[in-house]
């Protein structure tokens, strides 16, 4: 397995309101991840802060607007902007989602699901080739949190991701919370999903909180809300994954109701303990 370019440590999603606390405290986390789209302005505090963080920390740039899962062509202007951000900050990792968000030129600002068929497989593969050629680097593709299914799907999501990674050479970003959320939403066992997942291609893991509701029929419906600490069953699933693949760069995402920095950092410290335990297990 090719080692991850990110350190095999726990990181945290960077929030500007934490900047002062972070630079006041040396080396609290392994790396930071930022959303690419927040750094597409010309200048100002976002770039000043990210430039400062970059001096001391590893960096993962995570796109949320490229719409790789669209059947329509990629937005070339946006791809160019992504290249500008990646060229400027030289992140150890760049990732995007198996989802779409732009249709007929309108940006819908959500990660929307797609059917898994030979046709979508071909199109997503083409898009990832285009991204990797334009950026001149490997990208990681993240598994989505989904709330519904498509009648026309002919492939399992895990097989779809495995084939994409094989065709394009991209790595995978395994979002363990998304696995748990989607499995419960589709009445499946999250451990079965992990068992079928092409773990050898995983270069980064995401962890986050979710919220709970019910669907029309009263069945559990989990929402990928990124607004709470990581839930216990997600931690347990994460331990299972680490047991299978060993230490891997792992990120805590917290995007809504963002807590004070010590709380978010505490989540990263908790992930770091599990990474360290997995490393000891490997060494033993």
């Amino acid at each position: 397995m090719i080692p991850s370019a990110l350190s095999q440590r726990a990181g945290a999603g960077f929030k500007p309101e934490h900047f002062a606390a972070i630079i006041a405290e040396p080396q609290p986390v392994g790396f930071f991840e930022v959303h690419a789209e927040n750094y597409m302005g010309a200048g100002g505090p976002p770039h000043a802060q990210l430039g400062k963080l970059r001096e001391d920390y590893g960096l993962s740039i995570h796109g949320v607007g490229l719409s790789i899962g669209s059947m329509q062509p990629l937005d070339r202007d946006h791809l160019t902007r992504l290249k500008t951000v990646c060229d400027r900050y030289q992140p150890e990792s760049f990732s995007e989602h198996l989802a779409w968000s732009t249709h007929d030129g309108v940006f819908l600002s959500d990660l929307l699901p797609l059917p898994y068929t030979q046709e979508t497989l071909f199109r997503v593969g083409e898009h990832i080739d285009e991204v990797q050629e334009t950026l001149g680097r490997q990208m990681l593709l993240e598994n989505p949190a989904t709330y519904l299914l498509f009648a026309e799907s002919t492939l399992e999501e895990t097989d779809f991701l495995a084939e994409i990674a094989r065709r394009t050479g991209c790595g995978l970003l395994l979002d363990v919370n998304n696995v748990f959320v989607a499995a419960i939403n589709h009445n499946l066992d999250p451990r079965d999903y992990i068992a079928r997942f092409p773990l050898e291609a995983v270069r980064e893991i995401h962890l986050s909180g979710h919220s709970e509701t019910v669907d029309d029929l009263g069945a559990p419906l989990l929402i990928d809300s990124h607004d709470t600490p990581v839930k216990d069953p997600v931690w347990a699933l994460y331990e299972t994954v680490l047991g299978r693949i060993g230490p891997v760069a792992s990120l805590i995402e917290w995007d809504n109701d963002v807590p004070a920095w010590p709380l978010l950092r505490g989540e990263a410290v908790a992930a770091q303990r599990l990474i360290d335990a997995a490393a000891r297990q490997r060494a033993a």
């Binding site: 900047f19 959303h35 505090p45 949320v64 990660l111 979710h210 809300s225 607004d227 809504n256």
Partner: peptide, 22 residues
């Protein structure tokens, strides 16, 4: 040097798929 997190900087733009208000 770095500015401060300004109200109105629109950083929340980056969380599609993460709203819990389902």
């Amino acid at each position: 040097c770095y500015g401060i997190a300004m109200k109105g900087q629109n950083d929340c733009a980056a969380g599609p798929g993460t709203t819990c208000a389902g």
